[in-house]
Amino acid sequence: MLEVKNLTVCYDTAMLLNEVSLKVNRGELVGLVGPNGAGKTTLMRAISGLVLWERQMKRGTRAGNITLTGEVYFQGQRIDGLPPHRIARMGLVLCPERRRPFSELSVEENLKAGAYRVRGRRAYRDTLELVYQMFPVLQKRARQVSATLSGGEQQMLALGRALMTRPVLLCIDEPSTGLSPLIKGELFAKIGEINRSGITMLLVEQDVRQTLAMAGRSYILSHSKIVAQGKKDELMADETIRQSYLGL
């Protein structure tokens, strides 16, 4: 469904992604783990079109000196070079790092904003129902301004908002950052549930143990390169990978 071929991204003279290739098949939950600064978030931003958008916004400054080479295919269509909103409308949706709710909007308005491209009142109602079923706390807080939610609730909101777009492939960037172990467990359970409901997923995480356990396959990204990929057992079998990248 998603295929990334030799993706290279440079910001000015720093290379953040170096010939990265990966593949996500329909229905899979693919994990992407790696140390800080490996380029995980950059990869997500590149796939969702935000890197090129950033270049467009910052043209004329040094920060706008961004180069992106390689190819990204989604459902057979080439999407590198498309603006982020077009990619989102095709069904590839990124739930961004640090949650990023529309902070002064209420929870319900946030969800409505997620349903921006969903046409028709019926479709909207149904999706909203679904999201509320999955995250009952959002219904309880529907009228509350989203900045006043707790971190866990904000993450639920970000997931709910992403689900409102009716994604085909959902990329989630570091959902568990800053959450208590209890909430974290709940969150991972929800993520598994979303995946079983038929939405393909690419999950970027710091929590290696959880991710490897949940994901069918995982990639390890380090120093802007994919250093290993495979099922949990395959990755764990390799002593060097286990010790130097997974720390397990």
Binding site: T13, S224, K225
Partner: peptide
């Protein structure tokens, strides 16, 4: 040359 060097290093 700068590009080439960063590539090999990474």
């Amino acid at each position: 040359e700068v590009r080439a060097r960063t590539t090999t290093r990474a």
